[in-house]
């Protein structure tokens, strides 16, 4: 099997089976990787640079081909990248509904911009937005498509600490509301603990640790229940917590 199956049923879980990926016959970036994500599940994917996180996400997004193995995913997926990737020549609301061509696009754009708290900038040019605003717009663009599976590729990495906290809260709220499966690629252990149902640590293209995070929501950064998991994950990442 060497192709992506786009299942017709919305809400079908993501299934990755024996996915292997090499570049130019080098060592495998993904090495017979198996991963399953249940409908509505929030999975955080952690790992060092070069561990294969981005390659996995790009494969799931359909940006990289499946050359060896099989991937099943819902047809309706959205990606939010580390950079907002808004088209500078389209106003914010037009960026949000980019590619959609029916009569209700304006209303849909306004509604989703309201959800991410950006309705006051709906007519602005993207280059006039702050980093946090631009990322909210990118989030709105991902959500307006009502994806069954949402991929977040280090979406808060370029934001300042305070904006990042707000955005994490926003993502938690939106996930609760939309109930889509989420794969969050991140470097930040605390971010994973705050948001995810499950944390997966990737190392050299294989899963090293796969742990459920059962701390009840809503969670707070200072939750004492985080300690054990935090040192476990940091250990898996090769960072030894003091």
């Amino acid at each position: 099997m060497t192709h992506i199956q786009s299942d017709v049923h919305p809400g079908t879980a993501v299934i990755v089976e024996r996915l292997t990926r090499r570049f130019n016959n080098g060592p495998p970036v993904l090495d017979e990787l198996d991963l399953a994500i249940a409908p509505g599940e929030f999975v955080a994917l952690l790992g060092h640079s070069g561990s294969g996180k981005s390659t996995l996400l790009r494969t799931l997004a359909g940006l990289d081909p499946v050359t060896d193995g099989a991937v099943t995913r819902p047809r309706d997926v959205s990606v939010v990248f580390q950079e907002h990737r808004l088209l500078p020549w389209k106003r914010v609301w037009k960026n949000v509904v980019l590619g959609q061509e029916d009569k209700a696009i304006r209303q849909r754009a306004e509604a989703v911009l309201e959800e991410v708290g950006l309705s006051h900038r709906s007519n602005a040019w993207p280059l006039t937005l702050s980093g946090g605003e631009a990322q909210r717009a990118a989030l709105a663009r991902a959500l307006v498509r009502e994806p069954a599976f949402l991929m977040l590729d280090e979406p808060f990495a370029a934001l300042d600490a305070l904006t990042r906290l707000k955005m994490q809260q926003l993502v938690a709220d939106l996930w609760k509301k939309h109930g889509c499966a989420v794969l969050l690629v991140t470097h930040d252990v605390d971010e994973a603990l705050l948001l995810a149902d499950r944390a997966v640590v990737l190392e050299r293209g294989r899963i090293r640790v796969d742990v459920p995070i059962t701390i009840p929501r809503p969670r707070r950064h200072a939750d004492p229940g985080f300690e054990g998991l935090r040192s476990l994950l940091l250990d898996a990442l090769g960072v030894h917590a003091a």
Binding site: A61, L63, S78, V79, F81, R85, L98, G99
Partner: peptide
């Protein structure tokens, strides 16, 4: 990166 974004949004070649 913008072209990649367009492809994840399912834009056709013409779009």
């Amino acid at each position: 990166k913008l072209v990649e974004m367009a492809s994840t949004l399912g834009l056709s070649r013409w779009q």
